[in-house]
Amino acid sequence: MPIYAYKCESCGHAKDVLQKVSDAPLTTCPACGADTFRKQLTAAGFQLKGTGWYVTDFRNSGSAATGAAAAGASSSAEASKPSAGDGGAASSATPCGASCACH
């Protein structure tokens, strides 16, 4: 069942109401009792889940896979490097330190 937003044109009272599509619209304001309670025009809220949608499958086509492949290549290159004899020499060779995310 959809949720409809209503607002009173007299007092400004607003309320969201869960109604069937076939139900008659409400007209009487629950706050002031005037017959100026009207439906508001609102945007539908929905979320695309699963595969088969542009948002999940094709929006960044290739960039995520390329970025993941590059990250895997750099981590394997780091693993294959021989470690320095003293622990401080490797961190002093990088301009921003060994704990940064750019190396």
Rank of each mutant, 00 (worst) to 15 (best):
residue 1 M to T: 12
residue 1 M to R: 11
residue 1 M to N: 11
residue 1 M to G: 09
residue 2 P to L: 13
residue 2 P to Q: 13
residue 3 I to M: 05
residue 4 Y to D: 01
residue 5 A to L: 10
residue 7 K to C: 05
residue 8 C to A: 03
residue 10 S to L: 04
residue 10 S to G: 02
residue 11 C to I: 01
residue 12 G to H: 03
residue 13 H to G: 00
residue 13 H to E: 06
residue 13 H to F: 15
residue 14 A to F: 02
residue 15 K to M: 14
residue 15 K to Y: 09
residue 15 K to R: 14
residue 16 D to L: 08
residue 16 D to C: 02
residue 16 D to G: 02
residue 17 V to Q: 10
residue 19 Q to K: 08
residue 20 K to E: 08
residue 20 K to R: 11
residue 21 V to T: 03
residue 21 V to C: 00
residue 22 S to M: 07
residue 23 D to L: 06
residue 23 D to A: 06
residue 23 D to E: 04
residue 25 P to M: 03
residue 27 T to N: 01
residue 28 T to C: 05
residue 28 T to M: 05
residue 31 A to C: 09
residue 31 A to Q: 12
residue 34 A to K: 07
residue 34 A to H: 01
residue 34 A to M: 00
residue 34 A to D: 05
residue 36 T to E: 08
residue 36 T to K: 11
residue 37 F to S: 03
residue 37 F to V: 04
residue 38 R to Y: 01
residue 38 R to H: 03
residue 38 R to I: 07
residue 39 K to M: 07
residue 40 Q to V: 04
residue 40 Q to A: 02
residue 40 Q to P: 00
residue 40 Q to F: 02
residue 41 L to W: 08
residue 41 L to P: 10
residue 41 L to V: 12
residue 43 A to I: 00
residue 43 A to D: 04
residue 43 A to Q: 08
residue 43 A to S: 01
residue 44 A to K: 14
residue 45 G to L: 11
residue 45 G to E: 10
residue 45 G to M: 08
residue 45 G to H: 12
residue 47 Q to T: 15
residue 47 Q to I: 15
residue 47 Q to W: 11
residue 47 Q to D: 14
residue 47 Q to V: 15
residue 50 G to A: 04
residue 51 T to H: 00
residue 51 T to M: 00
residue 52 G to Q: 04
residue 52 G to P: 01
residue 53 W to M: 03
residue 53 W to Y: 12
residue 53 W to A: 05
residue 54 Y to W: 10
residue 54 Y to R: 02
residue 55 V to L: 12
residue 57 D to Y: 00
residue 58 F to T: 10
residue 59 R to F: 13
residue 59 R to G: 07
residue 60 N to G: 14
residue 60 N to H: 15
residue 61 S to R: 13
residue 61 S to I: 11
residue 62 G to H: 09
residue 63 S to E: 15
residue 64 A to R: 14
residue 65 A to Q: 11
residue 66 T to H: 13
residue 67 G to F: 09
residue 68 A to S: 06
residue 69 A to K: 04
residue 72 G to Y: 09
residue 72 G to I: 03
residue 73 A to V: 09
residue 75 S to H: 01
residue 75 S to G: 07
residue 77 A to Y: 06
residue 77 A to F: 05
residue 78 E to S: 09
residue 78 E to R: 10
residue 79 A to H: 02
residue 80 S to F: 02
residue 81 K to V: 04
residue 82 P to G: 04
residue 82 P to R: 03
residue 82 P to E: 08
residue 83 S to T: 10
residue 83 S to D: 10
residue 84 A to E: 10
residue 84 A to Y: 09
residue 84 A to N: 08
residue 85 G to S: 13
residue 86 D to F: 09
residue 87 G to K: 05
residue 88 G to L: 15
residue 88 G to H: 15
residue 89 A to R: 13
residue 92 S to K: 12
residue 93 A to S: 11
residue 93 A to M: 10
residue 94 T to E: 14
residue 95 P to E: 02
residue 95 P to I: 06
residue 96 C to K: 15
residue 96 C to G: 15
residue 96 C to S: 14
residue 96 C to I: 15
residue 97 G to R: 05
residue 97 G to N: 06
residue 98 A to M: 00
residue 98 A to N: 03
residue 99 S to A: 10
residue 99 S to L: 09
residue 99 S to C: 06
residue 100 C to D: 08
residue 101 A to I: 12
residue 102 C to H: 12
residue 103 H to W: 14
residue 103 H to F: 15
